[in-house]
């Protein structure tokens, strides 16, 4: 049997072309001197220059980063707790509902999450006077809620793989439960926690739909700014902005991937060493 038939390789190449040509085209056209976004008019970096001096864009970027930092951190704490709970506590009251609550936001269409959050915030303001104004707080709360379940999925998967014997050994050697958690469990699942945080961060940084519904006057995140411009059509300055974002995130992910891979390899090597020195 042929191990790599021509047909499969052809489709693979076509697939990757399909995945990357639109982005590459966007990057190329961000250096377009012409104001017409789709007609080539020579090389220029003027869109990048005007972008960096655009206060509106910079303010939106800063707001987005703030929201993403705060929401990713809370989402990681809550999501990790939920992941540990689902992986380590076999039976507890309301487990079925809990696992349902953790899965539901993953399949809930964003429009519905957005509208229900907005109605919730409006009615809360009506009934208990909070939140007084929608903006940073409401966006962050909504982002925490729908990104924490992604962290849970990642952490839970890692916890299931993790060797329980190490936790049991720590227990037998007299560690208290919180010591086991901080000295054994959390270090073992730390790569999962880190990727969970990164995922929550990028989800928050990228979200349009839920943010549109939970935002208020004056709180324009970067995706909302892009969304309002993009609805009007393709422009070269958005191409430049998009290029910066795609390239930054792309490099960040590749770097994080390399670091995580190295850390994981070192951890496995350490584990093997530890077992060998026991023999």
């Amino acid at each position: 049997m042929k191990r790599s038939p021509v047909f499969l390789i052809t489709v693979l190449c076509f697939g990757f072309a399909f995945l990357y040509i639109p982005i590459l085209s966007m990057i190329v056209y961000s250096f377009n001197a012409s104001r017409l976004a789709t007609v080539w008019g020579g090389f220029s970096t003027k869109w990048y220059v005007s972008l960096l001096s655009n206060k509106q864009v910079m303010d939106a970027l800063i707001l987005s980063l703030k929201i993403a930092l705060v929401s990713a951190t809370f989402a990681t704490i809550l999501g990790t707790m939920a992941g540990i709970a689902l992986a380590r506590f076999r039976k507890f009251k309301g487990r079925v509902m809990f696992s349902g609550l953790v899965t539901a936001p993953l399949i809930m269409p964003e429009v519905i999450t957005g509208i229900s959050s907005l109605i919730f915030f409006i009615l809360m303001a009506e009934w208990i006077g909070w939140p007084g104004q929608r903006g940073f707080t409401t966006i962050t709360l909504a982002h925490i809620t729908f990104s924490m379940v992604f962290v849970t999925t990642i952490v839970q998967a890692r916890m299931v793989q993790a060797d329980r014997a190490i936790e049991e050994a720590a227990m037998d050697l007299g560690s208290r439960p919180w010591q086991v958690l901080f000295d054994v469990t959390l270090p073992v699942i730390s790569p999962a926690i880190l990727s969970g945080w990164l995922l929550a961060f990028t989800i928050s940084l990228d979200d349009v739909v839920i943010t549109t519904f939970t935002t208020g006057p004056g709180a324009t995140t970067l995706p909302l700014l892009i969304w309002s411009k993009v609805k009007l059509g393709v422009t070269p300055d958005i191409n430049a902005l998009a290029t910066l974002m795609v390239v930054t995130v792309g490099l960040g992910v590749i770097l994080a991937g390399i670091i995580l891979n190295r850390a994981e390899a070192r951890r496995l090597a350490d584990e093997r060493m530890a077992y060998r020195s026991n023999d």
């Binding site: 639109p22 982005i23 966007m26 940084l205 990228d206 349009v208 995706p223 892009i226 969304w227 993009v230 393709v234 958005i238 998009a242 974002m245 795609v246 995130v249 792309g250």
Partner: peptide, 8 residues
Amino acid sequence: TSFLLRVY
């Protein structure tokens, strides 16, 4: 990478 930008 950004969903919105991939659509864009």
